[in-house]
């Protein structure tokens, strides 16, 4: 049972893309999560709905909307092409974008739950002790919200690994270039290559279980710190 180079490429791409999308989305996720969890402002529910929409829309629909936006004729895609000569659609960048958008609701849900669980009284206490809002966020809110943030990161990561519909729409299914592990399973099924399907399913399952095991171990059981 040997893994083919194409499959290895798909696996590395999936992991790379998932990690990269987390790194890219974490800072805006923290900012937006804090805003949505702790602040009241006009248009809050609208922003919340937009951020959460990939969770309720079929990924294919999200992917289609992205395709419209990012294609050379689309409002964003045309701009990028004119200025930077960048073609996003059907590139690895498109995979990152698709995966980031689809996994963002799960990431931000975790962040929001974590940040909302930090009592405002403790943040106010820190303010009276001379901490400005940024210091309060870094020294009180973030460390106390770490479980929720970690849960969001892990859920976002696994969601990214398994993303199929949106990736297929914007990035296509180019082996060695934009083909992720989920897409390669789809290919193998199409080709009737049962052994390859089994192999890839096993790999994805192991990764998924590993992520859940980490979640269990570091989030739900390790309560000694709090």
């Amino acid at each position: 049972m040997r893994i083919t180079p194409v499959e290895i490429a798909a696996l590395t791409l999936s992991v790379k893309v998932a990690l990269l999308s987390l790194i890219i989305m974490l800072p805006p996720g923290l900012l937006l999560g804090w805003l949505l969890a702790k602040r009241d402002f006009i248009g809050k529910s609208l922003i919340n709905a937009i951020v959460m929409s990939p969770l309720i829309l079929p990924p294919v629909v999200s992917g289609y909307l992205l395709l419209i936006l990012l294609s050379k004729q689309g409002p964003i895609g045309s701009l990028l092409y004119r200025i930077l000569r960048l073609e996003i659609v059907f590139s690895p960048t498109a995979v990152v974008i698709a995966v980031s958008i689809i996994s963002f609701p799960l990431l931000i849900r975790g962040i929001m739950t974590g940040i909302a669980s930090v009592p405002i009284e403790l943040e106010n206490a820190a303010r009276t002790l001379g901490a400005n809002p940024l210091k309060v966020f870094i020294t009180i809110t973030l460390p106390m919200a770490y479980k929720g943030i970690l849960a969001g990161l892990i859920l976002g990561f696994t969601k990214s690994l398994g993303e199929f519909g949106a990736t297929y729409m914007v990035a296509g299914n180019i082996p060695g270039k934009t083909q992720t592990i989920a897409l390669s399973i789809f290919d193998a099924v199409q080709l009737g290559d049962d052994i390859a399907v089994f192999r890839l399913v096993l790999i994805s399952t192991i990764i998924a279980f590993f992520a859940i095991w980490i979640t269990e171990r570091y989030i739900y059981r390790n309560n000694s710190m709090l």
Binding site: N124, R127, T128, L129, A131
Partner: peptide, 8 residues
Amino acid sequence: PPDKRKIG
């Protein structure tokens, strides 16, 4: 703001 008031 509270952090500038020096009130314990």
